[in-house]
């Protein structure tokens, strides 16, 4: 601190508290709505302190969704979201770490071609190739299946680059020592490289888990049965009937359920989250 100006310190805290309030307010209102009855939510203006229907609403959506629009149970949707998020995060890390290993530790024909091919995926988000990708997946009979939800999102240039950068900083002596001791490439990979990459793997896992959990467009296209909806898609299906018919207390309970798992991951793994976010964008 260079100088001490009490009014400036006051302004600082005031601005930060206003920022936190801005960030928290919508979530607080959603939480309050999720504890009210339908009539209480519909009463204008809605009250801003929690009601007594918390358990009732959450049990209702987890077991059988809404009564007027989608009646798919949110419990099942959360399971689908979890499978998708874990599938994408673990899958991305697994295929990226082995391809980065191949690119860094071997020299083979077509190595550069492969590298560029992986790089290209950066430039092709799902949003720009929606329809043809959907066709490929439906030709492979993967609509409404977990592989259909997971596989098309699993290639990752970012993760491959991150591991490549990291492997390049691992001293050559490790590989030489391993070779002298008679360890083959796979042994070296498993016993030396993977343990060294632990923090990178944790950091990427946080980012990729959130990415997978929050997917919207892809599950919207690829799931047609209620049993395959993810939580984020389920919310949209619950709001089908316009303002007056939407059971907002149940929609908001589902929104809270959809927010909690990724928020918990961010809060518990904050250190790795920050590291993963800052490094994967380089």
């Amino acid at each position: 601190m260079i100088e001490n100006r009490p009014w400036l310190g006051f302004v600082r805290h005031a601005v930060l508290i206003a920022g936190v309030a801005l960030v928290m307010f919508p979530v607080y209102v959603a939480f309050v709505a999720s504890t009210l009855s339908f009539d209480q939510v519909m009463h204008v203006p809605m009250r801003l302190w929690p009601g007594s229907h918390l358990i009732e609403n959450y049990v209702a959506v987890i077991e059988h969704g809404t009564t007027r629009a989608s009646s798919a149970p949110v419990g099942r949707m959360m399971l689908n979201s979890l499978v998708m998020a874990l599938g994408i995060s673990i899958g991305k890390i697994a295929i990226s770490v082995i391809s980065a290993f191949a690119i860094v530790y071997f020299r083979f024909p077509l190595r550069r071609t492969f590298f560029w091919l992986i790089f290209i995926t950066l430039m092709l988000p799902v949003e720009v190739r929606i329809f043809p990708t959907y066709q490929v997946v439906s030709d492979l009979h993967m609509v409404d299946t977990y592989p259909g939800l997971i596989l098309p999102l699993i290639a990752s240039a970012t993760a491959t680059f991150l591991f490549r950068q990291f492997f390049l900083t691992v001293p050559d002596e490790y590989a030489e020592a391993a070779r002298i001791d008679g360890a083959g490439p796979l042994r070296f990979f498993w016993d030396v490289l993977i343990p060294l990459s632990r923090t990178n793997i944790a950091a990427l896992f946080v980012i990729m888990f959130i990415y997978g959990w929050n997917q919207y467009l892809w599950p919207l296209l690829i799931t047609t049965q209620e049993g395959m909806y993810t939580t984020v898609i389920g919310i949209k299906r619950m709001m089908a009937g316009g303002d007056a018919a939407t059971e907002w207390q149940l929609v908001m309970a589902t929104a809270m359920l959809a927010m909690v798992p990724p928020a918990v991951v961010v809060l518990l793994m904050q250190k790795w989250f920050v590291k993963g976010l800052v490094e994967s964008e380089k």
């Binding site: 929050n214 919207y216 929609v251 929104a255 991951v265």
Partner: peptide
């Protein structure tokens, strides 16, 4: 301030719509 990173864009939309 950082945890809203975990909120899906669709849910951010629904919260503000509400």
């Amino acid at each position: 301030l950082i945890w809203p990173y975990a909120v899906a864009p669709a849910i951010a939309g629904v919260l503000w719509m509400f």
